[in-house]
Design a protein around this nucleic acid. Structure first.
Lengths: 295, 295
DNA sequence: TGTAGCGATACCTTAAAGGTATAGTAAGAA
DNA sequence: TTCTTACTATACCTTTAAGGTATCGCTACA
């Protein structure tokens, strides 16, 4: 038995529906079913009585729920108590991140970390991968989130997240009304594109295309996301950006679809300098972030 | 955080020594170090203060130990209480197993299962894989442990354990005094062998040899383990059997060494008939065994 | 100044969690 | 009744992370 089983059990017991519980847990439904079944096998009893349109807790399930709740409560209390003891960690951590999924991850990490170390504060700067790498070398930031491709022998990097590249399609384009939540690169080959200004992207995007030799029809490049959606709205072209950037989804003017191609994956990295020494607070934040990741 | 972390932490806290705790947990020391470190990162504090010849709990460690103990206690109590509720399962499960590791696994499974279902009893029979398969078809046994190779469309099988094949070497043979706890097939190629009487073994063992065409020099075959060691003691040849069979290790007359070859692995399978219906108690035992495996 | 004991690091292998597609089942609608 | 819908279970594949092996580095002690 693992706490994972307990968390999953509680989610199902609260929702009384495997499908909804799985959504809440951010996993697919089949693995949830399997984990619950494993738990039941270990306990030697069914915890839920499944009929196709209703779920009941069995007698054993009701009993187990008490204990399950206790375990989770103790887990939480142990964390709270330890963090209340107050760590000796103090200081200021300089962070930088690219736009897209970075700010979301960062917010969660900082919130979690500050519960453990309330005397550590943060200073966040946002920019492009190239700018951030430069700042990392200079000591203007301790830890940062950048995007692939990236490689620098003086910088330690760890993969932290992947997400699909997405196309923001103006409603004026017939592709916008195509059914399905993803589109293939063939569908927009040759069409006018709005894309990130980073130099390497052009080459990368061409690799998805049916004819990689053919130059892309790039009508506009933008380094900052804030401009992208507005550009797409005007109908001047299809914008290609990491999914989290287009997270606002469809509106009156645009439709957002994932790009369906095995290589159309945007990867985020956590980085720090290999040479420059960073403070204990920074080291602790680095370890904390990596131990938490997407969870 | 998972219960695994808690169990590992408690083991270290009790032994106050990573190496010994790892042994007790039946894992290697490096993964234990890593799990503890992960836990510390999640909590944001060190739980142990490591100096090379002494280990102390930190203040946070002392606090956490309280909660850790509580969690494990609740886990145990939940299992005990659920099993006390009494399941409706009753009956007799007919089990069969080959010699070697089978009886050991079975004993643990039955002990664990009977805590959950005290009204289920067991009848165990021991024999060779071929005999057992026959009995399974006849309905003379419900669930059994046999060895690979095995394949029968009317029988469901699941892999449950692997162990090295081992050589039981008479002290009279110079190989017995060779250093190292394993030997290579080349070392005993051509020497007189004592081996399991199952027909397929001859061909299997030849595949390990430097010249697979050359027939083995088999001086004696034995279907039952009880005879093997005695045969080897006489010095008539080297006996090849699954490691658990030679588990008694070295004595005055023989030395036991694992056979160092990628294919020299003996595999155990749990089987049941695909056609014949078995009782709910049998099904529950099947599920329980597979969910527990080697743990 | 070895030497032995012990934890950490680096790197690889394997097991188990998670994902996708789809089947199976029963309730409710047409 | 049969079709659809709303579920969970099954089968199979991919990916993540636990576990293993080899080795390093530190420090107490002989």
């Amino acid at each position: 038995m693992e706490l994972r089983h307990i968390r999953y059990f509680m989610a199902v017991a609260e929702e009384m529906n495997f499908t909804k519980a799985a959504e809440k847990l951010n996993i697919a439904q089949p693995p949830l079913s399997r984990q619950i079944k494993d738990l039941e096998n270990e306990l030697g009893t069914e915890l839920f009585e499944r009929t196709s349109h209703a779920l009941h807790l069995t007698e054993a399930g009701i009993l187990f729920k008490q204990y399950a709740a206790q375990m989770l409560e103790i887990e939480g209390r142990s964390k709270a108590d330890i963090s209340k003891m107050g760590s000796s960690l103090k200081g200021l951590v300089y962070i930088a991140t690219v736009e897209g999924y970075g700010p979301h991850m960062l917010a969660e990490w900082i919130a979690g970390f500050r519960k453990l170390h309330p005397d550590v504060s943060f200073d966040i700067w946002s920019g492009t991968t190239d700018e951030i790498v430069h700042r990392t070398h200079n000591g203007l930031c301790d830890i940062a989130i950048v995007m692939e491709p990236f490689s620098d022998p003086d910088i330690i990097s760890k993969h932290i997240h992947s997400e699909p590249w997405a196309a923001i399609i103006p409603k004026s384009d017939p592709l916008a009304s195509q059914k399905g939540k993803s589109i293939k690169p063939e569908d927009f080959a040759g069409k006018p594109l709005i894309m990130p200004s980073r130099a390497s992207r052009n080459e990368e995007f061409r690799k998805w295309m049916p004819d990689p030799q053919k130059p892309l029809n790039v009508v506009c490049k933008a380094a900052h996301m804030i401009n992208v959606r507005e550009l797409a709205k005007t109908g001047m072209g299809i914008a290609i950006f990491p999914r989290a950037t287009g997270i606002m989804g469809d509106d009156e003017y645009v439709t957002v679809k994932n790009i369906d191609h095995p290589k159309a994956i945007a990867s985020y990295l956590l980085i720090k300098s290999r040479k420059r020494r960073i403070s204990p607070a920074c080291e602790a934040f680095w370890d904390y972030a990596l131990s938490t990741k997407k969870k």
